[in-house]
Simulated scan of single mutants.
Amino acid sequence: MRTTLALESGYWGNVGHGVGAIILYAIVGLALMLVGFYAIDVTTPGPLRKMVAAGNPNAVVVTASGMVSMALIVVLAIYSAGGKLAEGLIASAIYGLVGIVAQVISVRILEWVVGLDIGALLKADQYSVNSLVVAAAHVGIGLVVAFAVL
């Protein structure tokens, strides 16, 4: 018995398009995560990058939650584009930037209302459960923005 493997016409073109889309979305996602990181860094006391590199646990928790929330926004912007590459890339960039602004403002307001000293929290060498409040705010705002995209 002989079996022949036959690929549909245009198969490799579709694979190439998919690989290209992955690369472009990864670039946009990485750029947004870097912009998001620097937005958090600029709006919090102290050099956040150094605190994360030093392993300050609260700085790591807050930064990680910011990155997860940015990823949520990008993922749902991609999903909402319905397979249209150009529209998806543009929507991801726009919604990502709006999400960054919304997160920074919302989290700073929450810290003020709750009375958190974010500078001291991020610089602390010991883990504090208060970092979870800030992390939850990042993820929560990320979810709100992400679902608003849909």
Rank of each mutant, 00 (worst) to 15 (best):
A39S: 11
G83Y: 08
L110Q: 10
L110E: 09
A31F: 12
V68P: 06
K50E: 15
D41C: 01
G99W: 00
A39F: 10
W112Y: 14
E111Y: 00
Y38S: 09
A136F: 13
E111K: 08
G16P: 05
G29I: 06
V62E: 02
A91K: 14
L89G: 02
Y25T: 10
V52Q: 10
Y95S: 12
D117G: 04
G66K: 00
L132D: 03
E111L: 06
D41W: 06
A39M: 06
K123H: 14
S106L: 13
S106C: 14
G99E: 09
V113M: 10
A135C: 09
V75M: 08
G66P: 05
G29H: 04
V133M: 07
N58A: 08
V68E: 04
R108E: 11
Y38R: 14
I94L: 13
V101I: 15
V134A: 12
Q103Y: 05
I100T: 11
D41V: 00
A59S: 13
A91D: 11
G83W: 09
N58P: 06
V60E: 02
Y95F: 15
V113T: 14
A31V: 15
M51I: 09
K84T: 10
L72T: 07
M67G: 07
V129M: 08
P57S: 10
W112C: 08
L76V: 10
P57G: 09
G66S: 10
D125I: 00
G29A: 15
A26S: 15
L34W: 03
G55L: 02
V68D: 01
V35D: 06
S128P: 07
A64G: 08
V19P: 07
L85E: 13
V52A: 06
I27M: 12
A26N: 12
I105C: 03
I78N: 01
I105L: 15
M70H: 14
